[in-house]
């Protein structure tokens, strides 16, 4: 099975081609530059290098979020539009799960996270068990301090993986102490070949039905819903 995988959910941009989970090409950058300009040239480049044609693809894997709203949309729109045009399915994978894949030779638990501003992070909890990545706690948005208190109580070593590690390193040290296990810099960047590997044994979605998993309502929507609730409460 030939897969194209794209991930633009953070400043790390990735595109990969895999055949039966074996990487044929992989393109990763970690620069604060526009994914909308750079994704399609990256895809074309790896397709040209491998000599693959769009018609050769069996499915397209995309990191579905959470992450930057605009970033996630660029990858998801590209993946679903290309999949629809080719008549093949899209396979969505959590952007956090893709990052957690990098913790595969660690013991203990893996907490991948993306900075979500105002002290919050998008995160979840994973563990590598018998050559498989298992989710222990669902992806969520949560104040980072509160999250770290929660996972510290498990008493296990924690591998925290994030392209935004620097900003959160002090807090991780403070909250986790000895339980905090550092990782090498490249393991903090989600790899599109991991995304393809995770996608390989999953069911695809029809392109029309595929949309981002933002894990958070748009601000205006959240405020509107809150107002509706208040009004309902007042009526009671």
């Amino acid at each position: 099975m030939k897969l194209l995988a794209v991930d633009t959910s953070t400043y790390v941009m990735g595109a990969a081609l895999t055949e039966n989970s074996r990487p044929a090409a992989e393109y990763i950058t970690h620069v604060k530059k526009n994914h909308s300009i750079r994704l399609m040239p990256a895809v074309r480049s790896i397709m040209q290098e491998t000599g693959w044609k769009p018609g050769d693809l069996d499915a397209i894997a995309a990191a579905e979020g959470p992450g930057s709203y605009t970033g996630v949309r660029i990858g998801v729109t590209t993946a679903k539009s290309m999949a629809w045009a080719l008549g093949i399915p899209v396979i969505g994978v959590s952007s956090l799960e893709v990052l957690a894949f990098n913790g595969r030779y660690t013991g203990g638990v893996i907490s991948p996270f993306f900075d979500a501003r105002r002290g919050q992070v998008f995160t979840g909890l994973y563990r590598w068990e018998d050559g498989r990545l298992v989710q222990l706690k669902e992806d969520r948005i949560i104040p980072h301090g509160e999250w770290l208190d929660e996972i510290r109580s498990l008493g296990e070593p924690v591998t925290a993986l994030s392209p935004d590690l620097e900003k959160h390193e002090d807090l991780l040290q403070e909250k986790l102490g000895q339980l905090f296990k550092p990782a090498v810099p490249q393991d903090h960047l989600p790899r599109p070949s991991s995304l393809a590997c995770l996608a390989a044994d999953r069911e695809g979605t029809a392109a029309h039905l595929f949309s981002p998993n933002y894990l958070r309502l748009a601000e205006a929507e959240a405020k509107w819903q809150e107002k509706q609730k208040e009004q309902q409460h007042e009526r009671k």
Partner: peptide, 8 residues
């Protein structure tokens, strides 16, 4: 991005 992907 949809246009570019469909065209590609």
């Amino acid at each position: 991005n949809a246009a570019k992907a469909i065209a590609f």
